[in-house]
């Protein structure tokens, strides 16, 4: 029973990290009908920019002068800013130029952009806080490591509160963020426009919705979601590598497909399902950790074959 509870918590945590990335996929797919394959890399970029900003804030001594929570908020803001910018870059330079060409083009160009982001992270991210140094209060031992080495993610969620508090925070942050997104999508004019553009782009234009502005806002919001997703991935895994993006991208995309690509809540359910399959296979099957990823992707394949519209994706057939 104790093992079961432990697995349940792990699955929930992993699900939270997948979910936010999957939400990014589904938001972008909704407004552009394009799978933006660099979502994972954008999220990891967010995590790395938080790590970089942490080092800068640390060496500037801000952590000693400002309250800890303000510093964390500042870091999150910086990460969100970076990812929102990157989201816009992805839209402007690797999706919009191809909006009139074959669907394959933006697909390839976003994969290319993902590779660029990944390699830039590997090249550029040099200074790092020694992972073994205590993050809060202690001496921040600055050292320079190659960006291609795994980096320690700073402990920003209750560094003194122990591991459970951190886990609870990860889950709470995810739930809060999804709640905010839900309110935004259903109660604000911009949120409703996003849904409208996703459901019927031509009619949206006819109703006078500023479609291009709506798309831009979607990419900003998606970028922010990915940034916080990356932050949670970092807080959960504690060690980050510049090439984590591909794996998280694949998981996030799979989660979005399993849930129903166009549906934001599908992305949440898909993320959780995938995480539960992975964690429980690893926990209960002998030598399961080696197969966990395989089984998760087999689930995806089964969904694509038998229920391609996803768990709560509706078939888009209009009654005539």
């Amino acid at each position: 029973m104790e093992m079961f509870a432990g697995l349940l918590v792990s699955a929930l945590l992993l699900g939270c990290t997948y979910t936010l990335i999957a939400v990014g996929f589904s938001l972008f797919f909704g407004v552009m009908d394009v799978v933006v394959f660099c979502c994972g890399d954008i999220a990891i970029f967010g995590a790395f920019s938080i790590m970089g900003a942490y080092v800068v804030l640390m060496s500037a001594g801000l952590f000693n002068t400002l309250p800890f929570i303000v510093c964390v908020a500042l870091l999150l803001l910086i990460g969100a800013l970076f990812c929102a910018t990157l989201g816009l870059v992805a839209y402007r330079f690797s999706i919009k130029p191809f909006s009139h060409s074959s669907e394959l083009m933006p697909l390839l160009s976003t994969i290319a952009l993902g590779t660029v982001i990944k390699e830039v992270l590997g090249l550029m991210f040099m200074p790092a806080v020694n992972a073994s140094a205590s993050a809060f209060g202690g001496e921040a031992a600055l050292k320079v490591v190659s960006g291609r080495n795994p980096q320690g993610f700073p402990e920003l969620l209750f560094p003194n509160g122990g591991v459970n508090l951190r886990y609870v925070t990860i889950i709470c942050v995810t739930v809060l963020l999804l709640l905010l997104l839900f309110i935004f999508l259903n109660k604000t004019k911009m949120g409703l426009s996003m849904q409208a553009v996703s459901q019927n782009k031509e009619l949206s234009m006819m109703t006078g919705i500023n479609v291009s502005r709506t798309i831009v806002v979607t990419f900003i919001i998606g970028g922010v979601m990915l940034a916080i997703g990356g932050f949670l991935v970092g807080s959960y895994q504690k060690i980050m590598s510049f090439d984590n993006g591909a794996m998280y991208g694949a998981k996030g995309f799979s989660a979005a497909v399993v849930g129903g690509l166009r549906n934001t809540w599908g992305a949440v359910i898909g993320g959780m399902l995938l995480a539960f399959v992975e964690v429980f296979v690893a926990g209960y099957v002998a030598n399961g950790a080696a197969y966990a990823g395989v089984v998760a992707f087999v689930v995806v394949v089964i969904f694509i074959i038998f229920k391609p519209e996803g768990i709560i994706g509706e078939k888009t057939v209009e009654k005539v």
């Binding site: 459901q199 006819m206 919705i209």
Partner: peptide
């Protein structure tokens, strides 16, 4: 641009363009 023309008072009703299917009639 399109949205400015709509704002200025041109309204188009095209049944072929369909509807926002997943939204209620009210929305």
């Amino acid at each position: 641009p399109t949205h400015r023309r709509v704002q200025a008072g041109i309204a188009l009703s095209a049944s072929a363009a369909g509807s926002f299917q997943k939204m209620s009639v009210d929305t």
